[in-house]
């Protein structure tokens, strides 16, 4: 596939926001949320990320003015469901923030927060996982990846926020969790990538055309200068570059942040905790880009050669 930046940004940013909400909720349940400033600023950040993500996702639409229609088919469409959950999430975070600001946030709010975050991860991941013939995506690992990457970035974010507002005790709590989640997310992504690399697609030129000759090649795709089918489904990035982007995204999205968090454990260095976030964000964006780029759409079999 040819990754659409709007979608890449939306899923990564919203993911981080969801993770952050979960982190804040967890602290709330743990009764570790005595510092209202932390709750409000974190929720503000989460809200900002969600809205920013949503805004980005509009960029993907050809007819954004009709976007409201997308809520209608929740019965069958994961995309529709996502479109319903996102505003709900935004609303909830807003309310929660407002409540937190007034100093009395009933536990139902963090509870709903966790539920909505989970639902949103599920919807977003299912949008891809339900496309059975995109074999790179049609797998439980897709759900695991979206959830763990979101949680990881969310907890790293929670840590960074804590660090930046000098809520050292909270940072001390979140850092180890962030570390564990980041390592887990890393392992999950590596597992998915190994699986994808090993896949041999069920669709072949033979099954795509019904021409059962062992040596079958396309000679012409039927047009000279490409079409939607060549623009939307081919990223056109050189294999080497692709591989490097893949490697970098693991390094910056997970490994480096993990190392920084590990170093921050004993020292509780605020600099390291913030740095972990700064480095992870581009890393995760690259990883999400790679998630799309790695998917080989069966339609591509029909669009191989111009002549």
């Amino acid at each position: 596939m040819n990754p659409a930046m709007s979608v890449v940004l939306f899923t990564t940013l919203a993911g981080a926001a969801q993770g952050l909400v979960v982190a804040v909720a967890a602290l709330a349940f743990g009764g570790a949320l005595d510092d209202p400033a932390y709750a409000t600023s974190s929720l503000a950040v989460a809200e900002f990320l969600l809205v920013a993500g949503l805004a980005a996702s509009f960029g993907h639409l050809g007819r954004p003015e009709r976007a409201w229609r997308a809520v209608l088919m929740w019965r069958t469409s994961w995309l529709s469901r996502e479109v319903i959950v996102v505003p709900a999430m935004i609303g909830l975070v807003g309310v929660w923030w407002w409540a937190a600001r007034n100093g009395q946030a009933p536990l139902i709010l963090p509870l709903t927060g966790i539920v909505l975050a989970a639902m949103l991860w599920y919807c977003t991941a299912m949008i891809y996982a339900c496309l059975r013939f995109i074999e790179e995506w049609a797998h439980p690992l897709t759900l695991v990846n979206f959830t763990l990457s979101g949680l990881s970035s969310g907890w790293v974010l929670a840590t960074a926020i804590a660090a930046s507002i000098r809520a050292g005790d909270i940072a001390a709590l979140t850092t180890p969790v962030a570390l564990v989640l980041t390592i887990a997310a890393c392992i999950a992504r590596l597992a998915a990538r190994r699986r994808n690399a090993a896949l041999n697609p069920r669709s072949t030129l033979q099954s795509a055309t019904g021409i059962m000759a062992p040596s079958l090649r396309q000679i012409s795709m039927g047009m000279s200068a490409g079409a939607f089918n060549t623009r939307e489904f081919f990223h056109g990035v050189a294999p080497l570059v692709l591989r490097n982007i893949g490697r970098m995204s693991i390094v910056f999205g997970f490994l480096v942040p993990a190392i920084l968090l590990a170093l921050a454990l004993p020292t509780q260095s605020r600099a390291l905790q913030v740095l972990a976030l700064v480095i992870q964000i581009p890393g995760l964006i690259a990883d999400r880009w790679y998630f799309f780029a790695q998917a080989r759409h069966p339609q591509n079999l029909y669009y191989q050669v111009v002549s």
């Binding site: 039927g222 047009m223 000279s224 200068a225 111009v306 002549s307």
Partner: peptide, 11 residues
């Protein structure tokens, strides 16, 4: 029509 053959190759 030119979208079908906008340029040619030597086969």
């Amino acid at each position: 029509l030119r979208q079908i053959h906008s340029h040619n190759y030597l086969h």
